[in-house]
Structure formats: C-alpha cells, structure tokens
Computed example of a mutant assay.
Amino acid sequence: MINVGYHISHEQFAPSKLLQLAKRAEEAGFAFAISSDHFHPWSNQQSHSGFAWSWLGAAMSATSLRYGVVNCPAYRYHPAIIAQAAATLDEMFPGRFFLTVGSGQAMNEAITGMRWPSKPERNDRLKECVDIIRALWKGETVNHHGLITVEEATLYTRPKKDIQLVAAAITSETAAWAASWADGLITISQPLDKLRKVVDAWKTNGGENKPMKIKVQLSYAKTDQEALLGAHEQWKTNVFGSAMLADLRLPEQFEQAAKFVKPEEIREFVHVSPEPEQHLEWLQSYIDLGFSDIDLHNVNTKQEQFIEVFGEKVVPVLMK
C-alpha cells in the first residue's frame, strides 16, 4: 500500500500557516506529514523557522494524520529529551508518531558552540543517541558515558506503542551503515541511478524487509515558468551535495553558495511541471524502487493550489 504525505516546511512558512495547511492536506486525502526541525532557514528570504516539537502537539491535536519529524538528537538536543518528547506525543496520540533521526547539519546544531565533528564521528554520536532513546522508551534507567553522557535517567511517561525509529540517509554509504539498526529508511529524491544505489545499499546490509520512505522535492504551478521560478526562488540554496549542506552554518553562506545557480539548473534537483500526470510518472518511478511512503514537498509558496490539485489528481491515484 502506498501512503502519500505532505511535507511541513518550517523554514518556509509560519507555524500558524503550517497548521492550516496540515488541516487542508488531511481534508484533501493526504495520509501523513513529515516536519522539518530547523533552527535556521536555508535562506533569509524563506524567513521562518518555528519550533517543530511544540507545533507537533498542536497539529496532532487538530488533525488525525500520522506525523514524523526529521531530527538530530545529539547537539542542539540531548537524546534523553528527544526520547521524552517522542514518548509524550505517543502517549497522547498512540501509534501516530514516528521519529526520523540523522547526523545533523551545522546550520542547526552548531548554535550551541560545540565543535562540529566529522561525518564518522557524527554517525557514532547518532548511534549512541539511538541506543539511549530506545533504552529509555523501554523503561530502563540509563547510565552512559561515551560521546554522549547520560546519568541516572529514567523515563516515567513512556510510549503506549512502539515508536518507529527511521534513519535519514542521502548517500549509499549512510544507508548501508544505518540498515542494521534502523526500523526504516528515509531519503530524498535524486537522479534514479544515485537513488538506486541508496536502495541497494540499504537492502543488502539489513534493510531488505524494512519500510522505505522518500521525500520528493517538486514544484507545481499553473505554468511551467511559474513552477520553475518559484522553485528557484525558494530552493536554490538547498541543491548542493550532502557534505556541503551539513557544514555551512548560516543562511547567508547558503545564499552566497547559490548566487550563480540558474533557474534551469533547478530541474536537476526538483521535479518541475504544471502537469499532474508528469508528476505521477515521476512518483511512480520511486514506487517501482520500493518506496511505500511518499512525502511530497512542493518547494514553492503556492501551497493551497498544490494541495487542492494533488488531492484531486495525484493522491487518489497513488493510494488506490
């Protein structure tokens, strides 16, 4: 069964606006929503960055959608706090929340003044965090002294149901590493040859029978030009390789890096089209690779139009 989700982009819209959009997405037939968890936006033009966890409480109360959040539990947050936050959501809304974890990006995590480590060390920290979170969810008293320190931590309000813990991976190397310990995979849309390598690495290293989710970056508008310019305006700062995205610290740095990105170049990173049928064709290629949860991120600002049209012409076709 294919589930279609609506992406909650805190970098682009005010939390109050996103709450309205989540309600509209549910009415249009979307099955779930995935929330970003940023401290800074990708550019000053985007101009927002609400606190995802307080927003999730409001959104889960106002709708019946399933929700996930893309989170790094190792720097800006302590893993014990993320374990507590997730458990609280599941206690109130059993079975409707899943946690997606990744190794983080400096633009969000370096604000604490901690040294920003290399990718291998960030992976090691993430795995320690995952083990701590799972132990706390089980009701264990956790003492841990490694890259992360936890002393005498016991979670008293625990999840009512098992919370799915999903690994975020863009590269095949990260997918292969995460496959042995994560409950599922989430990645992003990219050229099919690269994406196929991510899927193969996941499946051959322990992820064969585990669910796969994908965040699809697209731009839909009434005309191709409007869709293209909307994507370029909002998303040109987020088209670089994963190493660069992880290490830049400020919106101004992303803006400088994107200064010479031309509108037509966006098509390599974002599915741009005014035709729902074309988007269906692109989305089917991800389903053919084995993705069961498709998180649609319309990167331009025309959200109501996107929800209405895709709710009528795309979501019912994929979820039939």
Rank of each mutant, 00 (worst) to 15 (best):
L192R: 14
F254A: 11
Q225H: 04
G207T: 12
A243W: 12
S242M: 10
H232Y: 14
V239K: 04
F240W: 05
K203C: 14
F240N: 07
K203R: 15
E208L: 12
E255H: 05
E208N: 02
D247T: 15
P211Y: 05
L195E: 11
Y220Q: 01
A243S: 13
S219I: 02
L228Y: 00
L228H: 00
E233L: 12
L245P: 04
A231T: 03
Q256R: 14
F240V: 07
L229Y: 13
T223N: 03
L250R: 12
P251V: 02
L229K: 12
M244F: 13
F254S: 11
R249T: 08
N238H: 13
K215D: 08
K197F: 06
S219G: 03
E233A: 11
K194T: 10
P251W: 05
L192H: 15
P211I: 04
E252G: 08
Q234T: 13
K215L: 14
L245E: 11
M212N: 10
Q256L: 12
E233N: 10
L192T: 08
K194E: 13
W202E: 05
K222W: 04
T237V: 02
K213M: 15
T237S: 15
L192D: 10
L245T: 04
T223D: 01
R249A: 14
K236F: 10
V216F: 07
A221V: 00
A221L: 03
Q217A: 12
G241M: 00
